[in-house]
Design a protein around this nucleic acid. Sequence first.
DNA 1: CCATCACATGAGCAATTGTTCATATATTGA
DNA 2: TCAATATATGAACAATTGCTCATGTGATGG
Lengths: 122, 122
Amino acid sequence: MSEMLEERCEDPCEGTLTNSIELLKSEMIPDSTASGLADIFKALGDPTRVKIIYALAQKELCVHDLTQVLDMGQSAISHQLRYLRNLRIVKRRKEGKTVFYSLDDEHVEQIFHQMLQHVKHA
Amino acid sequence: MSEMLEERCEDPCEGTLTNSIELLKSEMIPDSTASGLADIFKALGDPTRVKIIYALAQKELCVHDLTQVLDMGQSAISHQLRYLRNLRIVKRRKEGKTVFYSLDDEHVEQIFHQMLQHVKHA
DNA sequence: CCATCACATGAGCAATTGTTCATATATTGA
DNA sequence: TCAATATATGAACAATTGCTCATGTGATGG
């Protein structure tokens, strides 16, 4: 019944009907979900990590390869790989001294390419 | 033919065949594209902005509404809306004193929801 | 015109981020 | 065992970020 009660009370600015806002508020995304979502997007929100993911989408590569392809220091690459690995976006495979990295989340990879097309088409 | 030439030359660590790396390097994503891609992902990579986008995906809302739904200060919301507007993720519509915001990029909205499902299903 | 409301914006500040530097760990071959 | 190679990691530091506070702008009604 209270859904029918529209219009302002005493205070100004309802924007939209106040009850509707209460409803929206109750159906809001949980904080933990919002943070989890933000964490993955944040991982994709850096040029270096974008390049790493782009390169790994072509083929599995070791750390040294990535330093060549991105023309960056080994330490910087390693730090970013750890970052991406913590979020299960990339995975490792050891072979003797060298460690090969590859993408570990097909869905994220798919979304990455969708956004890439979107940006290129802009 | 050079694709058949595997194995190391004089210097150590090829990871993968050296020529293959040169090829990859030449087919690498341009810096500007990587930055543009990172910029959009970065915009989605913050819990506050995630919540704003989630709310606006339900319906058009004014700034005051968003402060209620997110339980945050008006200034913080305004700053984030400007951020999102600069990237054309949201758009404005003025009606008297109040300004209504809504999503302005269906593709980004679609990707947002895909990632949301992915995170919830994790 | 003036007060009020809705929103925008600049400055400032603490927190986070991405890189470099130095060093640690691990694997291999002599 | 020792040296070399491949990668990982901690500390440090500059740059960026997201918020708050104070104030500015623009529209409305009295």
